[in-house]
Design a binder for these strands. Structure first.
Lengths: 363, 363
DNA sequence: CTGTTAGCGCTTTCAC
DNA sequence: GTGAAAGCGCTAACAG
């Protein structure tokens, strides 16, 4: 057993074709080196290997088509290269758009996404959290439903890397990436105001505890407060309750016309889901924009230009939000311990027909 | 060392709150039983445990908040409870809708989805495949881009569980779940024909190798062949090429009007992405439906009812497709070795204004 | 019924 | 520089 035990013999690579598991041990044997060296090679500790050794390993790995098992790697060191993403509602185009950016960032950094849709349900949120935990994800991207955040708080206490998307959570000091809701809503409202609308209804889903909605309301109120001659109102709707949106809008319109017959009424839709319901409601009521009512919606959607003379929107940089969120998370995973940070990206106004109030327009 | 070594002493559960890792060994120690028994308990081999033992374990697990590590479990037995999903394009609403069903099914069966978006790119497809492989996913849901399928074929040879979504792959005998494209396209075409349209253009993205598109063309041609008095034509478009769709439609329309001045022209859009481009193109050309041109689109989208008098669509049971695909995959994972199977679900026609050709309509 | 003993594939001290 | 050995948390024979 003196010297190196190079036994390049029996090259029985009978599995070469199949995706059959080649293990680090096999590679070591075939290359005539120790598992340790292979491991070092994989870990990028190249300066710890001699040039010939390095080459020997490289070629053997290539020849055998060896791929290290992330599961096994994760088991020891904890670097699973896994990131969990909890999405409040995968049917919401916003979520998917953010997911797109997040997935791209993951791929770029060699991470893989484990996706769970919670369907805005507390229980599923908790279950998903447990599932992701059991895979030792290194961090979490979290678009929470907002209520009952105890499990989230526990993560916070454990100093587990989490980045919140869109919605802040009371009492947790996680980083957050999202839209500058206040600014965007102010801009939106000002656009409507300066377009000549005097009576504006902000239509949102229930505000309770959802910070992004509250932010949008705040911006809305801010902008409205600069114009005492105009009227602003927040209208909460339940979009899963058929007809509720239509009724709400209808009553708002009637009310404003009674109060202020000369006023011009507009709706500011709080997000993409609401936009759709509003558009559907206006259609069912045979109301056209901008003739009968003005409309400006949060979230640019593929079909925004298509309806009527086009729906004006506030576009969110969704891809960037997702991408930035992953990068923030990676920073935390890699040990950054700076205080909580919020990254708020700007929205962009895309004016279209729905908010264009022709001065000479006849009712 | 005689008898049981019950040392329920030092209950130092100082981590109770944090998500800190409790291991099977700790549980075993605290419960005063062997790891094996715990493992059996976890594995559901309850009949192999005595009632008191069972209870002892149950309570200890609960008290410690123990959660087994899936990574470790997977390392040994291979049951990682992980399913990989490769999506050709996450921006495609079809993909997301299917993902929705797939994720739900996974959750229901205790599996977790690892999601990779390949962006219709061969290279990323290969990389993602490798990544998923390195996590020992038990099976794959695959919505491939279609070209260069060698890596897929290798999986086939290795008898790895794969279920294809929507698109068949030449030379692989994987199960497939998708739409009955031929039937749906036939139904669509017949609807247009019976509505009085005589000149129909099927607008699709490049057919080359994409079985679902070919299937739709086949159904289209079948239906057209029953009406020698009518004219059908397949128009391939590149939707990422600005203006191409508009030009194609415009030329088709002009051509048909020259050939057949009395004919009624309609477009059958091959999928949701195409639909959007068509709608945009018609708008830019100031063409209205059904007055100027008929329109029927594959894929029901949230905004289908909103544009003009509503766009008629062929709805796919996307959620069911995703759900069924996972169940098919699970069957394979659990050892089913029946010959290749295709599950083709039916589409549903949703007629709206865009295909309603009023008999007394004035051009 | 229950526990002991080996590993799964990889990383990581700690020697040489 | 390089390797042997000891686990990571769990499951799976194999004994009693």
């Amino acid at each position: 057993m003196a010297g190196r035990v190079r036994q390049k013999s029996n090259m029985q690579h009978m599995r070469s074709a199949g995706a059959g598991k080649v293990t680090i041990a096999q590679v070591a044997r075939e290359a005539g080196v120790s598992k340790t060296s292979i491991s070092r090679y994989l870990g990028g500790e190249l300066d710890a290997l001699s040039a010939p050794l390095r080459e020997q390993i490289r070629s053997t790995i290539a020849r055998l088509g060896y791929q290290p098992s992330q599961m096994a790697r994760g088991l020891k060191g904890g670097r699973t290269k896994l990131i969990g993403m909890l999405v409040a509602d995968i049917l919401n185009p916003y979520s998917v758009a953010v997911l797109h950016g997040a997935e791209a960032a993951c791929q770029e950094h060699g991470y893989t996404l484990m996706l769970c849709n919670t369907g805005n349900d507390e229980k599923r949120e908790k279950q998903s959290l447990a599932a992701l935990h059991s895979y030792s994800v290194e961090g979490l991207l979290f678009n929470t439903q907002g209520r009952n955040v105890t499990p989230l708080k526990e993560l916070g206490q454990a100093a587990f890397p989490v980045v919140l998307l869109d919605r802040r959570v009371e009492g947790c000091d996680f980083d957050l990436v999202g839209l500058d809701n206040v600014g965007a809503a102010r801009m939106a409202t000002e656009h409507l105001l300066s377009s000549g609308y005097s009576d504006i209804g902000l239509v949102v889903q229930p505000l309770q505890g959802v910070s992004s909605r509250q932010g949008r309301q705040a911006g809305f109120l801010q902008a409205m407060s600069t114009r005492p001659d105009c009227h602003g109102e927040t209208l909460e709707v339940h979009i899963d309750q058929p007809g509720h949106v239509a009724t709400t809008v209808h009553e708002f319109l009637k009310r404003r016309r009674n109060q202020n017959g000369d006023g011009r009424v507009a709706i500011l839709a709080g997000n993409g889901m609401v936009s759709l319901q509003i558009a559907l409601a206006l259609q069912s009521m045979k109301l056209r924009f901008p003739e009968d009512i003005g409309l400006l919606c949060f979230d640019e959607l593929s079909w925004s230009p298509l309806v009527g003379s086009g729906i004006s929107t506030i576009e969110q940089p969704t891809y960037d939000i997702g991408f930035a969120a992953i990068e923030r998370l990676l920073a935390r995973i890699n040990g950054e311990s700076a205080p909580r940070r919020e990254i708020l990206l700007d929205g962009r106004l895309i004016p279209r027909g729905s908010s264009k109030l022709a001065q000479d327009m006849v009712l």
